[in-house]
Design a protein around this nucleic acid. Structure first.
Lengths: 329, 329
DNA sequence: TTGATTTTCGCAATCGATTGTGATATTATG
DNA sequence: CATAATATCACAATCGATTGCGAAAATCAA
């Protein structure tokens, strides 16, 4: 069923039907109604792809996510998809992985699809390879980097004050009497680096520079946390609290401590980050830093829509993270 | 950069460039190479939407999911997206909700986008409203219903033996000496109904028909589990085990029991279903029924690809669920 | 060298929409 | 009633690709 079929049935030309569909003027009320009735009857809807060709707008938005299986990624994807859909946009969600190569490949796919805009989720996209790819193939489309910043004309950034948030996490632990606070996680994303800087600032604030421990582990899975804390404690028996860059990792930490019968938080306190649902359901539940994924998603969608509606001022927004205190501290 | 731009630079017609891109014969090797070099140089890739117009294939697949935030939904979406991408397809993921109306709306969106195929995730799609919508607007495209079945020519089904799986859950609990086994969750999806039937069969098998308790709660959130078990125990103090239709719900149940100091599984055993990561990290960890979301996803993608490659035999596949025994039983 | 084959490539139509321009029908004006 | 003004709609071009068909060029045979 094409627009020509409808036109034929109505005894008019396709252009007339098009004008009715798009509420353009210059059509007799009588004709308009007749066509509208036919549109309903055959419940015809125009082919968005064909439309995109001439309108130079596909109404497609690309959402690049390292891994949709992560709770905070899917939380964000959910609100974004929902909000974009309200405006008639469809979301193409790609798992872009954490490697620069796969990220770049994903951007190429979006170029082919001629998406109207892109949302990049996670600071992992804040790297040279991605920047180059965006500069080369995505000059036309607005881009929102959720949790990060890239200095390109058409890239908008939403930043979360993870640095300050982490610093406040140190405050919290200090207030609980903790002095040997360790930081666990790798530093291979700008986001994690920010967190680490915040940790450092916090420790320095209390004159605990000597006690700083950066314990790098490879992944963010709970196994990494489990093995990590095991090794951490063997190397630094005096540690009395651990800040993990991810809730999932904290889950592994807690499991190990539970197995050893170490009292949380009395002997060792633990915090995660990113406020995943996981933190609510462990025993003890995990104090975490809410990185405002929902707000970020809403904001990202909003900025994109604004831009597509003509508000061409590049934006850089800052959201404030929030500590969610639970049993593990 | 269009195909005409490339053609101009190469001093040939667009049709020649097209034939080179698509590896069609009838082009002099010399010309072919020259064009290929230009394609690389400008790293040109054809507009997939324009291509779709003439090829009558958008290389777009719609994935309908009630809610991507559910872990087992995103697990599935992840593998599906990955596998489809390998074949040059893009995934449009829509959160279709649990209401028939929003499901139908989502199907309409996919029709407009002229997707080449659809994957429906979850038995919730197994209803009249969806069936009608598919029959009306999706006769052309292959559809795979992951975890369910609809009797339409172009709909393939992947079924999971949740009924039998639940029955084996009853076996397990019986073997642990439990006799007052309650079933908790609503029955508003075919999947949950299957689970309930399995529960009934299991109870009858052991002559425990008298002890059957169907305790219906509205949602599947942990709060539903928490409140549910609270009420359940007040009404039926002799219950010694609870089968929940969802891990998340079991999380709430466990939390309540923990708060009361009830020993799990000695006093009351608990099982969840769907093998979410949540079940691994609670204390005690939750025995669950793995509904094979990963396998289902791979299978769904595979069936769709087969169909799109010409293997037009409708399929109905059965996967076997598997009990994952943990501490809660 | 000439005519027959085969290669190689361009022309033009097509996919399903949108839109500027101009033609026709309708109404208004004097 | 004739003419000007306006309302209504169709034609054809266009978006960026693909493809059947025919024309020109190259190769072959005699």
């Amino acid at each position: 069923m094409t627009i020509y079929d409808i036109a034929e049935k109505a005894g008019v030309s396709a252009s007339t039907v098009s004008r009715v569909i798009n509420n353009k003027p210059g059509i007799k009320a009588e004709t308009r109604e007749k066509i509208q009735k036919l549109l309903k009857e055959y419940n015809y809807t125009p082919d968005e792809n064909a439309r995109g060709l001439v309108n130079k707008a596909t109404k497609l938005i690309g959402i690049l996510i390292p891994d949709i299986r992560n709770n905070h990624h899917s939380d964000l994807a959910y609100v974004v998809e929902k909000k974009l859909r309200e405006q008639g946009y469809c979301s193409i969600i790609l798992n872009a992985g954490y490697e620069h190569k796969t990220m770049a490949e994903s951007i190429q796919i979006l170029e082919q699809r001629k998406v109207d805009g892109i949302i990049l989720v996670g600071s992992a996209f804040q790297n040279d390879r991605v920047e180059k790819e965006l500069r080369q193939r995505m000059t036309h489309a607005p881009i929102v980097l959720a949790n990060g910043y890239l200095d390109l004309a058409n890239v908008h950034g939403i930043l979360i004050d993870e640095r300050n948030g982490t610093k406040r996490l140190v405050d919290l632990l200090y207030s609980k009497g903790k002095r040997h606070i360790a930081f666990m996680g790798n530093l291979n994303t700008p986001s994690n680096q920010e967190k680490f800087y915040g940790y450092e600032e916090g420790m320095e604030k209390y004159g605990l520079t000597e006690n700083k421990i950066l314990f790098q582990v490879s992944g963010i899975e709970k196994e990494s946390g489990y093995r990590g804390v095991k090794q951490l404690l063997s190397e630094h028996p005096d540690v009395d609290s651990v800040i993990c860059v991810e809730d999932l990792m904290a889950v592994g930490v807690i499991r190990y401590l539970n197995e050893l019968g170490i009292k949380i938080p009395q002997q060792i306190a633990v915090t995660g980050m990113n406020n995943s649902i996981l933190g609510e359901i462990t025993f003890p539940s995990i104090t975490t830093l809410d990185n405002k994924m929902i707000d970020t998603g809403l904001m990202a969608a909003q900025i994109l829509m604004n831009y597509l509606n003509g508000e061409n001022n590049a934006q850089k927004v800052m959201l404030f993270s929030e500590i969610i205190e639970r049993e593990s501290t």
